[in-house]
């Protein structure tokens, strides 16, 4: 089943030019898709369309066969959770568990069930021991994990991460990527990861590249990085390791393309011995 299906979607911020036009995009159930693009490529607009925070000017958006309309808005929002960029701007409460409860409270979940969902969400993001901590005292990565937990408390089937790692340090980024991978593999949550970190896209099943509101490249992450000349024209770059492969090849060392450090070392050893 399609988790998300966008058909001929159009959207503009009302300045005349369309941000998206005749935009088609589907995400399969259980899939982990990375959406790449430079700043201003339209990828964040995509995140806000998927659960109706922005309303499309035309076309259809379906979430598990439910057509997104004013009447189904909240059904769709319960299915599609969005985690945003700034770790400081997504929490409404000062205490971790109160914030996680917020979404579940909004949809009228009974008290005991909210308690269970907080347990589940905190477990899923690995923060059980910080249940009553002050949000203000957490690290950036922990704050983003609270944001993920807050979305999980609504039991969504799709999780959209809109550059949720952009403001984090490497440790925080790793924390988030670990959580996201686990949610996808173990909880079978469909993941749409919007990012400009090429390294993060490596973990996805499928990657799409956006430029000027259009999908311009699509395939497995390895496929995409294979076409590196094209990436450059969309103001993107290969992950560092891919770039090193290409440089070695250009220097006459026939290493196979790889995005894994151990593998590249093996390739180099193979070429020199």
């Amino acid at each position: 089943m399609h988790a998300i299906e966008m058909k001929d979607v159009a959207f503009s911020y009302g300045e005349g030019a369309f941000r998206l036009n005749k935009f088609n995009f589907t995400v399969e159930e259980g899939e982990f898709v990375a959406v790449l693009g430079h700043n201003g490529s339209g990828k964040s607009t995509l995140a806000r369309l998927m659960n109706g925070i922005l309303a499309a000017d035309g076309g259809e958006i379906r979430v598990f066969d439910t057509l997104l309309t004013d009447d189904t808005l909240y059904d769709v929002r319960r299915q599609v959770g969005v985690v945003f960029q700034n770790p400081d701007n997504q929490t409404v409460a000062s205490i971790v568990e109160d914030d996680i409860a917020f979404g579940a409270e909004n949809v009228g979940t009974p008290r005991e069930e909210i308690g269970r969902r907080i347990d589940f969400a905190l477990g899923a993001v690995g923060m059980r021991d910080l249940r009553t901590a002050m949000v203000a005292r957490l690290s950036g990565g922990q704050k983003q994990r609270v944001a993920i937990a807050g979305v999980l408390a609504l039991k969504p089937r799709v999780m959209v991460l809109d550059e949720s790692t952009a403001m984090l340090d490497p440790r925080g980024r790793r924390e988030i990527m670990d959580v996201v991978l686990r949610l996808n593999r173990e909880e079978k949550i469909t993941v749409v990861l919007i990012t400009h970190f090429m390294e993060e896209a490596l973990l996805a099943d499928r990657a799409v590249v956006m430029n000027r509101g259009e999908i311009v490249m699509e395939g497995t992450p390895a496929d995409i990085f294979e076409r590196h000349e094209e990436l450059v024209t969309y103001n993107l770059a290969l992950p560092r390791i891919g770039a090193i492969c290409k440089r070695l090849q250009a220097g006459g060392m026939p290493v196979a393309d790889t995005l894994d450090a151990e593998k590249l070392a093996e390739e180099i050893v193979r070429c020199v011995s």
């Binding site: 560092r240 770039a243 090193i244 440089r247 070695l248 220097g251 006459g252 060392m253 450090a261 151990e262 590249l264 070392a265 093996e266 180099i268 050893v269 070429c271 020199v272």
Partner: peptide, 26 residues
């Protein structure tokens, strides 16, 4: 990773130096 495989690369960890020294291995 190269060292574990018996190849010692005396490099200053800039990409330029790494590429140069690796190519020199050949």
């Amino acid at each position: 990773a190269l060292e574990r495989r018996g190849v010692v690369l005396d490099c200053d960890f800039t990409t330029e130096d790494f590429i140069r020294k690796t190519l020199a291995l050949m």
